[in-house]
Design a binder for these strands. Structure first.
Lengths: 260, 260
DNA sequence: CACCATTGTTTCTCTATGTGAAACAATTAA
DNA sequence: TTAATTGTTTCACATAGAGAAACAATGGTG
């Protein structure tokens, strides 16, 4: 598209359709043809035909009243396939349940996808105050505990790209200085866990630990999230211990054998 | 392409791609180019280019080792949008939680999509023995309690299509006789709930009740599922009462006001 | 180690397909 | 009523995508 010239042999009509699908978000869950057309710079008729084809296979659904399109149920079906074919999903389920029960806070499994942290799995706690995250959600990696774990244990190139893209200030404690981020990640690697106290959202604290595969490579992060007042600073270390050991347990289920 | 002439203005390369995506399932979560090519009757090179394009937008992921493709994380992200933009998802959450707690069995919300029952939402119980259902799963409507509720309250045309497609025998109690199905659905409509005792799977019982929208139209079903031994026949009616009232509560949240 | 068998990607040519402008409907607004 | 904004369809043309075959990359197998 813009960067590499070798990837120009993509099927353009398909690429259009996929860009349209990816443009749906929680903020814009439904759109009209003309909106899509103008926002993505595509011809009206192109969008119209594309949407008709997408609808024919259940990827979008057209509200007959408002004429707006929203994502269709084929996507739900496919997401079920994604989950069930992901071994980490199966292996982590019971351990997440236990962790949520003992800590009383919501737990997630997440991975790095391009330059986002994406939540693969979530087990909610029973507290009435929840509703911050959901499976599939993407967040910036440099201001979430899971993101920082994943960055700390990935190669320099990824970190570089993240910094290059820019460190925006999401909340009062967001780290926007590359040097400070570097230092923080070194800490994370040393301690074996990361914490984020109001780095992404005001009033929200999270703690994360790595999950390893059979090769000893960090493939995911396990994190717990909760309101700041339920997770005061002095409790972080104790909670981190539990998160770390839960992470190791999942890792062992994934074939990891601690070497050192 | 081959069948109907009115649907001929679909974009063929896009249609191909969507058919490929929809061909992934729990049984076949990963496939090679040649497998896709032969199973869908598409040219090798077509599939190769299509997959490359799909991968470029994160809809599939290519395992560099095995060269097999699996569904990508964009689908997870989009499924999050589907869920969060679905008001029934939000409205039903707390009521499902409560129902699961009091009954101790897993609960689902499901709707009819074409001729399938599809699970939109699921709250699992704590029992170690659970089931293989998952959000997005599709089941035949005539042998699940939720499906029978949805059929009983939908129009005749849908039922006709279902019967026309054929009533396969999934389990010992599957209703395969159209007349018996008709009779059963009349019962369902009269009683306001449906039950399925080993109609889809041996050893599995489920009980479902309708969910109404503000117009009084049945738009979804609420069901609970459990092993037969935990839900004996004599308990079904009592449980059904609870399921029905939970369904009504969700309906009220969706704007339904009981008229009669 | 050479052999054949299968695979995925690329090249190439040509046709069919998708694009965009404009015409046409169908709503909605003024 | 007219005007404005929308979604769909028509149409002609350029081009993008399909298919055959060549190529490359593996992987068995003897």
């Amino acid at each position: 598209m813009e960067t590499n010239n070798q990837g120009d042999h993509y099927l353009s009509s398909l690429k259009n359709a996929l860009r349209i699908l990816n443009s749906f978000s929680m903020d814009e869950p439904e759109k009209k043809v003309s909106e899509i057309s103008s926002s993505l710079g595509l011809n009206k008729s192109t969008v119209s035909r594309t949407m008709a084809t997408l609808a024919s296979e259940g990827f979008v659904y057209k509200d007959p009243e408002t004429k707006k399109y929203r994502l269709g149920l084929s996507i739900l079906t496919l997401s079920g396939v994604v989950n069930s074919s992901m071994d980490i999903y199966r292996e982590s389920q019971p351990i997440l349940n236990e962790l949520v029960e003992t800590l009383g806070e919501t737990a997630h499994i997440s991975v790095l996808d391009h330059l986002d942290v994406i939540y693969l799995h979530k087990v909610e706690c029973n507290h009435p105050v929840r509703f911050l995250t959901h499976v599939g959600r993407r967040n910036p990696p440099y201001c979430t505990s899971s993101g920082k774990v994943l960055l700390a244990f990935s190669n320099e190139a990824v970190l570089h790209s993240v910094i290059e893209k820019g460190l925006d200030k999401y909340s009062k404690n967001t780290i926007t200085d590359p040097l400070k981020l570097h230092a923080n990640l070194r800490e994370v690697k040393k301690n074996g866990y990361a914490s984020s106290v109001e780095e992404l959202l005001d009033g929200v604290t999270s703690i994360a630990a790595p999950i390893y595969d059979y090769k000893g490579k960090v493939i995911a992060a396990l994190s717990i999230v909760g309101p700041k007042q339920r997770i005061p600073s002095h409790k972080i270390q104790g909670i981190a211990k539990k998160v770390i050991s839960a992470g190791l347990e999942i890792s062992r289920n994934m074939g990891y054998r601690k070497i050192d």
